[in-house]
Nucleic acid binder design. Structure first.
Length: 413
DNA sequence: CGTCCACAGGAATGACGGGCGG
DNA sequence: CCGCCCGTCATTCCTGTGGACG
C-alpha cells in the first residue's frame, strides 16, 4: 500500500473515529471561563476595590499573593473584563492593561507595553527608560482616563531588576491631574514583600488579597465544570475526575496542574481510541507530564551538571545507601580526566548538586557523620532509566558516556 | 568533654558574553 | 555601531559546624 494511503487511513480514522473532545480549548491554561467556582469572594473583593473607578475615583492599589494555579490571574482578568464592559455601557473612561512581567523581562519592555495600551509606539530599544516613562505619563495625562494596570508575576521582575520602575509607577499619580493609574500586582511568591522598598510596599498594598490553594473538593468542582464543556457527555468517568483532583490537591492545590492532567489524559485516551477517560489515563498522564518535565530539564542541563548527575548515577548502581559529596567529586574528576575536560572545583560541584536537588533530579540531604565529618547524602531523584535521556538529547555527551562506561567495565574484568 | 573530620556555604573576585544606551 | 555595564558561571579563600571518637 502506498504511503499516502496509510496516512489517509490515519487521518480518516482520526476524523471519523469516536472523538471525546467537544471543545479542547477550555482546558488550556489561559482560558478564562464564564464562572469561577469557589472564587466568588475574591471576585467580589476585587470588584469592590475597582468599582470606584467607574465613578472617576481612583480606588486602591491591590496586591495579590498566591501560589501557582490558585486562580489569581483568572480572577483578576474576569473581574476586569466585567468592569470594562460596564464602563463601556455607562461611558466611563477606563482602560486596562495586562502585562506579564516575567515574559516582558525588563523594565523597558514593561513600559513599552504600557505605552502601547495608551496608543503610542516606542522603538524596541534606543531610548532611556526615563524618557519612555515620561512619554507614557504625558500621553496618559492627555487622554484623561483611569488606567488599571495588572502586573502579573511581578516578583520575577523585581528580583531580576529591582523595584525602581515599581516605585515610579506607584508615585505617578502625584504628577497626574486628568488621569490616574491603578495598580494590581500579582505575585506567586509569598515572601515577596521582603524584596520591596517599604514606601513601594505601603503604596502598592493598600489592599491585599491572599489566594489560598484549592482543596480537593473545590478542585473537583472546577474540573467537573470544565470537563462538561471540554468533553462529550459521559466520556469522563467519575473516578477519573476524583483522582485528578486528589492528585492536584496533594500538590499545593494547583488548578492549572489539575486541568493539565485532565487535558493530557484526554489526549491519551483519544489517541488510543478509547471512548472514555479513565483513572488509568489520569495516572498515565501524571507519569507523562513528569517524564516530559524531567526530559526537558535533562536536555537543557549544562555539560558539567550532566557529568555530576552521571557520577551519581554510576555510583547509585553499587552503593544503594548514601553517596557523599566527596564520593561524587572523586568520580566526577575521574570522568573529567577520561574525557579530557578540566574539572570544576569541589565548591562548584557542591553547588551543582544543590541546583540538581532544587529541580528534583537529585535528593541531597545534609547529614553529620560525627567524627567523619559533615556532608550531603545524595540519591537519584528520578528513575535511573531516565538518565538515558542524556544520551539521546546530546549525542556528543552520549558517545563520551558510552566510552567511559566501556572503560569502567574493562577495568572491572 | 574537647577534638577534629569533611564538608557546607558565604563573600569577594574574575572571565565572558550579550544586550542596553548613547 | 561600539563601549560599557550587567548577569552568569566559576574560582579562591574563608569561616562554620554536628556529632562520633578518644
Amino acid at each position: 500500500m502506498p504511503k499516502a494511503d496509510v496516512l489517509d487511513n490515519i487521518f480518516d480514522k482520526f476524523l471519523k473515529g469516536p472523538t471525546i473532545f467537544k471543545n479542547h480549548e477550555v482546558l488550556h491554561p489561559d482560558y478564562v471561563p464564564d464562572y469561577l467556582p469557589h472564587r466568588d469572594k475574591e471576585v467580589q473583593t476585587i470588584g469592590k476595590i475597582l468599582a470606584p473607578a467607574l465613578r472617576g475615583y481612583r480606588g486602591s492599589n491591590v496586591f495579590i499573593y498566591g501560589k501557582t494555579g490558585t486562580g489569581k490571574t483568572a480572577v483578576v482578568r474576569y473581574t476586569l473584563d466585567h468592569l470594562i464592559r460596564k464602563s463601556r455601557e455607562i461611558g466611563a473612561p477606563i482602560d486596562s492593561c495586562y502585562i506579564n512581567c516575567r515574559l516582558a523581562g525588563t523594565d523597558y519592555r514593561v513600559l513599552s507595553n504600557l505605552c502601547e495600551t495608551v496608543g503610542i509606539v516606542v522603538p524596541f530599544t534606543g531610548l532611556a527608560t526615563g524618557e519612555v516613562f515620561d512619554r507614557f505619563r504625558n500621553t496618559l495625562e492627555a487622554k484623561k482616563i483611569a488606567l488599571i494596570t495588572i502586573l502579573d508575576e511581578i516578583d520575577a521582575l523585581i528580583k531580576a531588576h529591582g523595584d525602581v520602575l515599581l516605585y515610579k509607577l506607584t508615585r505617578i499619580n502625584e504628577n497626574l491631574k486628568g488621569s490616574k493609574v491603578l495598580l494590581i500586582g500579582i505575585s506567586n511568591d509569598l515572601h515577596f514583600k521582603e524584596f520591596l522598598d517599604p514606601r513601594v510596599l505601603s503604596s502598592l498594598s493598600e489592599e491585599e488579597i491572599v489566594f489560598h490553594p484549592y482543596t480537593a473538593v473545590e478542585l473537583k468542582d472546577i474540573l467537573s465544570e470544565r470537563a462538561e464543556m471540554a468533553f462529550i457527555e459521559g466520556s469522563v468517568s467519575e473516578g477519573a475526575l476524583h483522582l485528578c483532583s486528589a492528585l492536584a490537591a496533594s500538590e499545593h492545590g494547583d488548578a492549572r496542574r489539575a486541568l493539565d492532567l485532565l487535558r493530557v489524559a484526554g489526549e491519551l485516551a483519544e489517541r488510543e481510541g478509547a471512548s472514555k477517560v479513565t483513572e488509568d489515563h489520569i495516572k498515565f498522564a501524571q507519569k507523562k507530564i513528569e517524564e516530559d518535565r524531567v526530559a526537558e530539564v535533562l536536555k537543557t542541563l549544562p555539560l558539567h551538571s550532566k557529568l555530576v548527575l552521571f557520577s551519581v548515577y554510576l555510583m547509585a548502581k553499587s552503593k544503594t545507601e548514601g553517596v557523599t559529596t566527596g564520593d561524587v567529586f572523586e568520580v566526577y574528576k575521574e570522568l573529567c580526566s577520561r574525557l579530557m575536560l578540566d574539572p570544576l572545583t569541589q565548591r562548584r560541584v557542591s553547588g551543582l548538586v544543590n541546583e540538581l536537588d532544587g529541580v528534583g533530579i537529585l535528593n541531597a540531604r545534609l547529614v553529620s557523620l560525627g567524627r567523619y565529618g559533615r556532608t550531603k547524602r545524595i540519591h537519584l531523584g528520578i528513575p535511573p532509566e531516565s538518565i538515558s535521556e542524556i544520551y539521546t538529547s546530546d549525542p556528543w555527551v552520549g558517545q563520551l558516556m558510552n566510552y567511559v562506561l566501556k572503560c569502567i567495565q574493562k577495568q572491572k574484568k
